[in-house]
Each structure stands twice: as structure tokens, then as C-alpha cells.
Amino acid sequence: MLVVGCKKNEFIPYYQPIMSLDDKLQGVEVLVRWKLSDGSLLLPAYFIEVAEQMEVINEITITLVKKVQADFRRYSSNYNRKVFCAFNLTAQQIENKSFINLLILTLKKEKNFVPSFEITERQHFNNLALAKANIRRLQEQGYQVKLDDAGTGYGGFSYFMDFNLDGVKIDKMFIDVIGVDDVKVEVLNSIIMMAKRLGIDIVAEGVETQQQVDFLRKHNIDYIQGYYYSKPVPFKDLNFDN
């Protein structure tokens, strides 16, 4: 089904806004959806792991990048400033030199948005040296690379030492403790403090309440993402006027 889905061009991008502390749209995270023949949408949790195992994840990602480029071209009249556009990459993709070459080539002449990348900490890197070299190549192209799901996976904060990353995305599990558990919120405070000392961007995802927004504003993080502002939507439903 995955192979057929690729051939039938069934994988499409949805976009979740990433906002500054003053509620201005600064960027979007690109999230893949599988649009089946009956019009229903499958979330990535149902197919991404299998896509990686079958090695069709690279084809899906490049297809997604091209559709994002087409969306920004098609709706260019909807916005008057460039925003960053964050694509998710797996550990397997980061370690694939040929894929990184193709990704850079695909985005080389992009003028309508600023590409950036998020790598998840929930997957294990087999070749740190190769991953480091490929991340550096992306950064040399002017693309930011951020750590997704920080504090939840294999690498711990050693990834900051290994990869010289540009930012960190704080996982929803840490945001959920705001106003609920004063002890666990100290872990969140530690992540924020560490990122600030490293001088890197901080994105909080999974934000759903005013209390969480107030806490994050008080701690002066850089960006906020979550249902408080918007669920993932098709490009035409993004509001660039914020």
C-alpha cells in the first residue's frame, strides 16, 4: 500500500503554525498526511515506521518538499514575508549522504520560504560521524537544524555536543506539567536554561492552554507551537496576517 501510495502521489503536507511570543506567524512545521482514495487522511503514526523499514521514507520526504514548494508558489499572493518551513528528518535520512545531496539539490533555488530541519531524538544514530558531517552540510547551505523531542530519546543532551545544533524543540510531555507538577516543571526549566546558555533557539510544541503560554512568555522562549494557536491545516487555511 505504501509503494502504491507513493506512485499515486497520495502523501500530502499539512502545516502547523509556529508563533513568536507576540503571536506573529514565524514559521510552520510540515507534517505528512496520507490521503487515501476515499478522501480520508491517515496520520503518520500509522505508517511512518513501516515507511522507514521499507525504505520509501526518502521518496515520501522529497515528494513532500516538492508539494510544499508548489503550495508556496501557488499561494504566494497570500503572504508578504518569508517564514521558515521545518521538515522532519529521521536518523536514517541524516546518515544517508545521497539523500542529503538530493534534498539540498531540491531546495537549492528555493526563494519563497526558509527551509529548516528537525531531527528526532527518539531514533538511534548508527554513525555519528556521518550524521555530524551531513548536518554540517545542511547548515553550510544556510539551513537551521534543530533537535526534536528533546529529552525523550536515545541521545540525551549529548546531541548538542555532537551536532552543534541551532535549536531545540521541547516535547509536549514537558509542556503538560506546567501548572500541574511543580517538581517535574524543574526539568522543563533546566532544558530552557541549557538552551539559553548554548545560545540556541527554543521552540515549545504541544501548547494548548493560556497558562502554558503565559509560563513560556515569562521564560522568554523563542517560538510556540500547538493547538492553542492551530491544529495542522492545509496551506490554504494558514493565516499569514498574524
Results as ranks from 00 to 15, higher is better:
residue 149 D to H: 08
residue 183 V to L: 14
residue 214 D to W: 05
residue 174 F to H: 07
residue 82 K to W: 09
residue 107 L to S: 07
residue 237 D to C: 02
residue 170 I to R: 00
residue 39 G to L: 12
residue 117 F to V: 13
residue 132 K to G: 01
residue 193 M to R: 08
residue 165 L to P: 00
residue 58 N to S: 15
residue 84 F to N: 12
residue 230 S to R: 02
residue 151 G to P: 06
residue 204 A to Y: 01
residue 155 G to P: 04
residue 214 D to T: 14
residue 189 N to C: 08
residue 136 R to T: 12
residue 196 K to G: 15
residue 235 F to K: 03
residue 219 H to D: 08
residue 9 N to H: 13
residue 196 K to A: 01
residue 199 G to K: 10
residue 208 E to Y: 07
residue 140 E to M: 10
residue 99 F to G: 01
residue 169 K to H: 05
residue 109 K to T: 09
residue 212 Q to S: 06
residue 11 F to Q: 01
residue 47 F to V: 01
residue 33 R to Q: 06
residue 168 V to L: 12
residue 229 Y to D: 04
residue 70 A to I: 01
residue 38 D to Q: 06
residue 160 F to T: 10
residue 57 I to G: 05
residue 37 S to Y: 05
residue 7 K to A: 15
residue 110 E to F: 08
residue 11 F to A: 00
residue 83 V to T: 15
residue 66 K to N: 10
residue 156 G to K: 05
residue 79 Y to M: 02
residue 30 V to R: 03
residue 227 Y to M: 03
residue 132 K to D: 05
residue 129 A to Y: 04
residue 84 F to M: 06
residue 216 L to F: 13
residue 99 F to D: 01
residue 29 E to K: 12
residue 126 N to M: 13
residue 91 A to T: 11
residue 114 V to F: 14
residue 117 F to I: 11
residue 95 E to Q: 14
residue 205 E to V: 02
residue 121 E to K: 10
residue 209 T to S: 15
residue 103 L to I: 03
residue 16 Q to Y: 00
residue 222 D to N: 15
residue 136 R to N: 09
residue 124 H to K: 14
residue 169 K to F: 02
residue 95 E to G: 08
residue 124 H to N: 10
residue 182 D to F: 09
residue 52 E to W: 02
residue 121 E to M: 11
residue 190 S to Q: 08
residue 188 L to S: 06
residue 71 D to Q: 10
residue 235 F to R: 02
residue 155 G to H: 07
residue 50 V to R: 09
residue 46 Y to M: 06
residue 187 V to P: 01
residue 166 D to G: 10
residue 206 G to M: 05
residue 183 V to Y: 14
residue 105 L to Q: 12
residue 209 T to Y: 07
residue 87 F to W: 03
residue 157 F to K: 00
residue 118 E to C: 09
residue 58 N to R: 15
residue 60 I to K: 00
residue 86 A to S: 15
residue 143 Y to S: 01
residue 158 S to K: 12
residue 28 V to T: 12
residue 83 V to W: 11
residue 49 E to L: 03
residue 91 A to V: 11
residue 151 G to F: 10
residue 44 P to M: 04
residue 175 I to C: 11
residue 227 Y to L: 02
residue 91 A to F: 08
residue 133 A to H: 07
residue 58 N to K: 15
residue 119 I to H: 03
residue 92 Q to R: 13
residue 221 I to A: 05
residue 198 L to Y: 11
residue 159 Y to T: 03
residue 151 G to K: 08
residue 169 K to A: 08
residue 185 V to R: 07
residue 74 R to P: 02
residue 152 T to R: 01
residue 131 A to Q: 04
residue 176 D to R: 09
residue 81 R to Q: 15
residue 37 S to P: 05
residue 53 Q to E: 12
residue 59 E to A: 14
residue 40 S to G: 07
residue 30 V to C: 07
